[in-house]
Design a protein around this nucleic acid. Structure first.
Length: 416
RNA sequence: GCGGGCGUAGCUCAACUGGUUAGAGCACUGGCUUGUGGUGCCAGGGGUUGGGGGUUCAAGUCCCCUCGCUCGCCCCA
């Protein structure tokens, strides 16, 4: 193997992979704008503190997955492992509190030092939307509707199931955590090794353990539902009612927990069974404490992130690409004419290219390999007559067209 | 960080229990066909069998190390 390898967990996107990727992103951008979200782009790295504080000192992301380094000025910098914290930082440093409720969308690369596997990479890419400033369940519903809509437009809604849960507010969650820990401590020896560690670090995570023994034990465990206070259970009911109203299907899954510390109330994931161990395609929830945790005023927030690679892997169909018109000039003078015509077509909104090299056969071959619909042949005969030979590469039918009528001709042909 | 599987041409894969010069399809280049692409026929280029060491008369094949890929655990999008 050559040394010219991509770094582990990174990948190049080209050809069909690139088309899949950009189809996901462009569809998302279009929909997010349609829902009234404004685009934001934040730096790909931040001071480490931006991520450390909200993610919590015990989370795996912070303790072993961040790409952290000192820059030449001695500042501790981290490549973003997720983007909600970056956006909240931008919200605060940009004074966006002035604007009331803000709806933001973005997408880009994230970095986590993990062992790669199917659907999991060290540099991966996310779509992301956030609504900051709204305490209403309606905001959560709107976000989920956008997510569902996106999956539908991408043609993969049927491959996913929406799992929905509530983590309650701080009071409810603390009360529940306490009783859960008491219950699990009684059975500590039966827990898996990982879950015994979680018992101290992040007991709620035991709920979605994949270990069969843990799951059996959890069947008799107390449920979150019984510990929700009135405000929390009303909030959850409002989210469910909003989804019902929009006829968005979901499954309540009281084992669904989110990994990061700052979530509360709504937690949801669109899950697929087609990506091996990485089932989550879109995940999100509410984070009312985050802005305050990062030094801002008490401000509610809610959002989700989607894995672009995971969505791209699920795509079954891609939109057709616009087909080229390829110019095939055979003489020098014809080449100059073709250059002008090709430039004019491109300015007129057509996809056009030149076949520069070789004899007629080679140039047609090139046009064919590019998937072109039309070849415009300009040789001595055409230069003499002033009419271009336009060959439909699908049917093989040729027409003689004046240069001034080329654009109109192509438009008419492709409209059929 | 832990565990399983796999590394032969650009891609997908052959090569019987170790045995001559590592093959095929696709792709690529050229020709049959000097103004007509796709299907056809012919020819050609392309490999340190991931790398290193060992066993053997002989290693793509067996052993060790290493690098890489992949799947899973953990965690997450």
């Amino acid at each position: 193997m050559s040394k010219l390898q991509p770094v582990r967990g990174t990948q190049d996107f080209w050809g069909e992979d690139a088309r899949r990727f950009s189809f996901v992103v462009s569809t998302f951008n279009q929909l997010a704008k349609r829902y009234g979200f404004k685009e934001i782009q934040t730096p790909i790295f931040e001071f480490t503190e931006v991520f450390r504080r909200p993610l919590g000192d015990t989370s795996d992301v912070v303790t072993k997955e961040m790409y952290t380094f000192l820059d030449r000025g001695g500042e501790e910098i981290t490549l973003r492992p997720e983007i909600t914290a970056s956006i909240v930082r931008a919200y605060l440093s940009g004074g966006m509190q002035q604007k009331g409720i803000v709806k933001l969308f973005t997408s880009g690369a994230m970095f986590r030092y993990e062992r790669p596997q199917k659907g999991r990479f060290r540099q991966f890419h996310q779509l992301d939307v956030e609504i900051i400033g709204s305490p209403d369940a309606a905001a959560d519903v709107e976000l989920i509707a956008l997510a569902r809509h996106l999956l539908e437009v991408l043609g993969i809604a049927g491959a996913t199931v929406l799992h929905l849960n509530t983590l309650g507010d701080t009071e409810s969650r603390n009360a529940y955590r306490k009783t859960l820990v008491i219950y699990l401590k009684d059975h500590e020896r039966k827990l898996s090794r990982e879950s015994r560690a979680r018992l101290k670090k992040n007991p709620l995570r035991i709920l979605d353990s994949k270990d069969a023994g843990d799951q059996a034990l959890l069947k008799k465990a107390p449920g979150m539902n019984d510990y929700l206070n009135v405000a929390s259970s009303d909030f959850f009911a409002a989210v469910r009612d909003g989804l019902d109203n929009l006829k968005i299907p979901y499954t309540v899954n009281d084992r669904l927990v989110r990994g990061l510390d700052y979530y509360c109330h709504t937690a949801f994931e669109f899950i697929t069974d087609q990506l091996g161990a990485q089932g989550t395609v879109i995940g999100g929830g509410r984070y009312d404490g985050l802005v305050e945790m990062m030094g801002g005023p008490e401000t509610p927030g809610t959002g989700w992130a989607a894995g672009i690679e995971r969505l791209a892997m699920l795509l079954k169909t891609l939109p057709e690409e616009e087909r080229l018109t390829v110019f095939v000039p055979m003489t020098e003078a014809a080449g100059r004419l073709a250059d002008r015509l090709c430039y004019a077509l491109r300015k007129g909104g057509f996809a056009a290219d030149m076949a520069y090299r070789g004899n007629l056969k080679k140039r047609l071959q090139k046009a064919d390999k590019q998937g072109a619909r039309f070849a415009v042949i300009i040789g001595e005969d055409e230069m003499a007559s002033g009419k271009l030979t336009v060959r439909d590469l699908d049917s093989g039918i040729q027409a003689s067209i004046g240069a001034d009528r080329l654009a109109a001709f192509l438009k008419k042909q492709t409209a059929d």
